[in-house]
Design a protein around this nucleic acid. Structure first.
Length: 893
RNA sequence: GGGCGGUUAACUCAGCGGCUAGAGUGCCGGCCUUACAAGCCGGGAGCCGAAGGUUCGAAUCCUUCACCGCCCACCA
């Protein structure tokens, strides 16, 4: 029966995937309905930057989310995958500023209002490209609910939360030393600072004594900040320095600095004397607070020295450092210079060295929020998967510092704070005011915007409609699972937990699945500068989304790195093809069977009424189905993929389809139809099993099944038919596989010509096995290139020309050309016997061990007993053969 | 300085107290067998990083060490 002409030889993914996706979308299959029944299963997407395009990290993240979403949807859960994008303040603003620069203008020239118009316009025009790319991946998000962090609704949520936290004292404004990026011209939070090991110099600078006091030498890496010094600090117990108050003179300026004593100072480092610059160092700032020191800012927001730096004013901070060092040397005030390796903070975006700067910023008081978040993980309200991340999470939450949330940008949620020019009061308000509510004076709004992560911290409830009490919020919060890379645990996961617990009074999600980070094939981080970036869309173009998704899922275990290479994807594209062709084959037999049952899927008989191969595959399908479900429930995506892959390829294709062929091509019509129906049943379940990982090809194939009306994506996920469990059929198929493999192996070893038919015999240890072989011999003949397969008479000797394969249930004799070399055969058997003897010795020693018998679990001991019996059976067969062959070797030729 | 990973076949990894340690890719040999040559069949390949320890039993648990990688960090 030739396959149907419309059934192409390969899955034409380039044509099929967009078409199928459009069908799903048109049919509204992604939509969630809060009124619908079923347990809620909810995922909120980690919102990609609206300016971004799909990279490997997104591809992995969204593949896993889609697998879970599709699985739960098929299971009948009330499933919502909530999509959207992030305004990504600093990143987006930078992109638009670059565009402006190319036009020869700038943000300053445009002014705030026109600049923001430009960003919105840019967003409408080029933003959201990534949504289309997520669709190509197959993401089954409910696009009707797509949100953007700067939507009116979400902005309202941001404002509400800001006001509420302010009213509660959890948001405050103050003058502190914050991390300032002189290039981005904004403050950034602590976790946005990266630390880079750098080879630097430690300069020993002499501060001469004032008023007859002693001189001090301080050690610093940043001599250019000396004009901001307002003290020198030593350890209170440092005996190298005289007791009592004294002062030193700042080089060049002559300004007098008090010498203070504080245990913060490390006596062992440098000279044990520390220059204190409260305006440009966070530790010095704290020292200054403790000792009531003034702050002097000597470097401005652009990294340029200020008038406080006297002759160096107007110089860049690094230029100034060189010049100052040179000048100190010339004045004999540079005692020495040592090389020093230390970590320097740089901006996570532009890698510019951070300038700690005293400035007026808004902060979130994170202490109480963080301890609530940590508690929710400690008591299991939110689980981290893999659990090993908990320690890291606690580490951070327990040592968290206040979160600087103001950014000196224009693109973002402007801080809802107004300052009265008359009475000087600060007003944080939900509605824009006309005038000062207190005195009616003129108001000026705070120009700054909020950190992008402030709004993404609200994502799990703001997207569901909060602050309104929507049906979605009631039904879908807390969400079920959050899937993300571990790189944003602190940026995002922790913030959502803090905000969710504070605002909603409950955790934002029950489980956080932290997946690996995608690397290139050699484990390197992908980056444009390294040129090792693989574009996921190119991969989809070349291999299809299904192969790509499957490759990602197959590697999504508990490791930290996921090394992706095209070879791997190519490997799974062969799997897609394999599945396609297996289905093509199955369908060519299903079609006539369906014809016989009126175009409908033929009713498959119960497994127990079927021949052995069907009973076996259905038993295996049951096991694999249950294992796949267990794997998905525990987020073991790699295991799920592996199980499905091997079931399809090794069992379904390599054995079941081959064993079915003699029947399917046979003359017995009843048997043929039954086999086809059984095949259809197994195929349908297999497609459903694979659908979460490979949605396109499975949907396409499912549509070709006879009598198919609905979509596979909205069909039930297989639950497994418990009545199909059949360990005996698995054992018996195992014997038939042994026979087949033994003959194939003998043929290959002895170079039996491909066309030549052999007449193997099976010498079974018991009549039941002999009967089994005789019964199913017709199914095996073609698989092993045999003309006949017979059970040898009990006790019959192995023919001289036969290659023998020994099993615990008996032996397979495959006659090969001429006579088997007796000496070689003897050597082989002796080797085999030695191996068997080792196995037996091992098993026996275990069973003779009282500790083993007493402590090992019952089933393990039982297994060992069975194994020992099987070894002994094998040994007996091998010994018998050896006796025979020895006789031949000695007396024969 | 603190913490977390990794080290298993040529490569990339799975296995994480008990089957004779597995898979994919690659390699070797043979096949165009009417679902699939993007395929089929057969085959070789590993003192499970090192050393101790716990245990009846260790690739798997503990300790120490080595190398690789990541994260956090207020000795300038």
């Amino acid at each position: 029966m030739p396959p149907d002409d419309s059934f192409t030889r390969n899955f034409e993914f380039a044509e099929a995937e967009p078409r199928i996706y459009a069908d799903w979308e048109r049919e509204g299959l992604f939509r969630a309905d809060p009124e619908a029944p079923g347990d809620p299963f909810v995922i909120v997407i980690p919102p990609p930057n609206v300016t971004g395009s799909l990279h490997m990290g997104h591809a992995l993240d969204n593949t896993l989310q889609d697998i879970l979403t599709r699985y739960h949807r098929m299971k009948g859960d009330n499933t919502l995958w909530m999509p959207g994008t992030d305004h990504a303040g600093i990143a987006t603003q930078a992109v638009v500023e670059r565009a402006l620069a190319a036009e020869g203008t700038s943000r300053a020239e445009l002014g705030r209002e026109r600049f923001l118009e430009r960003v919105w316009k840019w967003k409408e025009e080029f933003g959201g490209k990534i949504i289309g790319q997520l669709k190509r991946l197959g993401s089954s998000c409910d696009w009707s609910r797509e949100r953007f962090t700067m939507d009116p609704g979400l902005s309202r949520a941001v404002r509400e939360v800001f006001c509420a936290l302010y009213e509660e004292g959890l948001i405050y404004r103050g003058d502190y030393v914050t991390n300032w990026c002189p290039r981005c011209l904004t403050a950034i939070s602590d976790i946005e600072v990266e630390h880079e090991e750098k080879d630097d110099s430690l300069y020993y600078v002499v501060y001469e004594g004032a008023g007859g006091g002693p001189s001090l030498t301080v050690a610093t890496t940043r001599p250019e900040t000396m004009f901001g010094d307002t003290a020198v600090a030593i350890h209170p117990d440092d005996g190298r320095y005289p007791p009592g108050d004294f002062k030193v003179r700042l080089p060049f300026s002559g300004r007098e600095l008090p010498v203070i004593r504080d245990p913060y100072v490390e006596r062992e480092f440098g000279t044990g004397a520390l220059k204190v610059t409260p305006a440009h160092d966070i530790n010095d700032f704290r020292l200054g607070e403790r000792h009531g020191l003034p702050s002097v800012t000597c470097i401005d927001r652009r990294g340029i020295l200020t008038d406080a730096a006297g002759p160096y004013s107007g110089m860049d901070r690094f230029e100034a450092r060189k010049k100052i060092v040179a000048d100190l040397g010339a004045s004999g005030l540079l005692a020495k210079v040592e090389p020093l390796k230390h970590a320097v903070g740089v901006c996570y975006r532009c890698k510019t060295v951070i300038e700690p700067l005293l400035s007026l910023q808004w902060f979130v008081k994170t202490g109480p929020l963080a301890s609530a978040a940590a508690r929710s993980v400690r008591d299991g309200r939110t689980k981290l998967v893999p659990q090993s991340w908990e320690r890291t999470f606690f580490e951070w939450m327990d040592n968290i510092r206040d979160w600087c949330v103001s950014r000196q940008l224009w693109w973002g949620h402007q801080i809802p704070a107004w300052y009265c020019s008359s009475c000087g009061k600060t007003h944080v308000l939900r509605e824009d005011p006309e005038a000062c509510p207190d005195c009616g004076g003129g108001l000026e709004r705070d120009p700054d915007v909020l950190d992008t992560w402030f709004s993404s911290g609200l994502w799990p409830f703001s997207t569901l409609g909060w602050p309104d009490r929507t049906p979605e919020l009631a039904r879908y919060y807390p969400t079920t699972v959050l899937v993300t890379g571990f790189d944003i645990i602190f940026f995002w996961v922790a913030r959502m937990m803090m905000m969710g617990l504070k605002v909603m009074g409950d955790v934002p999600f029950r489980t956080v699945v932290l997946h690996p980070l995608v690397r290139d094939a050699s484990g390197q981080k992908m980056s444009k500068s390294k040129g090792n970036v693989i574009d996921p869309l190119g991969v989809i173009d070349r291999y299809g989304a299904d192969a790509f998704r499957f490759a990602l899922a197959s590697q999504a275990g508990t490791a930290r790195d996921l090394k992706i290479s095209e070879d791997r994807v190519a490997g799974y594209s062969r799997f897609v093809n394999k599945l396609w062709n297996a289905a093509r084959f199955a369908m060519s037999h299903l079609a006539p069977a369906a014809g016989a049952s009126g175009g409908k899927m033929p009713q498959a008989p119960p497994a127990s009424a079927m021949p052995l191969p069907d009973r076996w595959i259905r038993s295996r399908l049951l096991t694999v189905t249950l294992e796949c479900r267990a794997a998905l429930e525990s987020f073991a995506f790699d295991r799920y993929a592996d199980l499905a892959y091997h079931f399809v390829w090794d069992e379904l294709c390599d054995w079941y389809l081959e064993l079915a062929k003699p029947v399917l091509y046979g003359d017995d019509e009843t048997a043929r139809l039954a086999a086809a129906a059984s095949l259809g049943l197994v195929l349908a379940d297999t497609l459903a099993l694979l659908h979460p990982a490979m949605p396109f090809v499975t949907e396409e194939l499912s549509a070709k099944l006879p009598g198919q009306s609905g979509r596979l994506m909205s069909s039930p996920f297989p639950a497994g038919r418990p009545e199909d469990r059949d360990p005996d059929s698995e054992r018996r198929i195992g014997i038939l596989m042994d026979v087949t493999r033994s003959v194939r192996s003998a043929r290959a070893d002895f170079r039996v010509p491909p066309g030549a038919k052999v007449k193997p015999q099976v010498s079974a240890n018991d009549p039941a096995t002999a009967a089994l072989v005789e019964e199913y011999a017709p199914l095996l003949l073609k698989l092993m290139g045999a003309e006949s397969l017979a059970a040898a008479a009990p006790g019959a000797p192995k023919p001289r020309d036969a290659c023998e394969a020994i099993h615990d249930w008996g032996a397979v004799w495959t006659p090969v050309a001429g006579e088997v070399d007796a000496a070689a055969e003897k050597a082989r058997l002796e080797k085999e016997l030695a191996a068997i003897a080792r196995d037996i010795a091992q098993a026996e020693s275990k069973l003779a061990n009282p500790g083993y018998l007493a402590k090992a679990p019952e089933d393990v001991v039982e297994e060992t007993r069975e194994r020992l019996a099987s070894f002994k059976a094998k040994r007996e067969g091998a010994e018998k053969s050896l006796r025979l062959i020895s006789g031949l070797a000695a007396g024969g030729n």
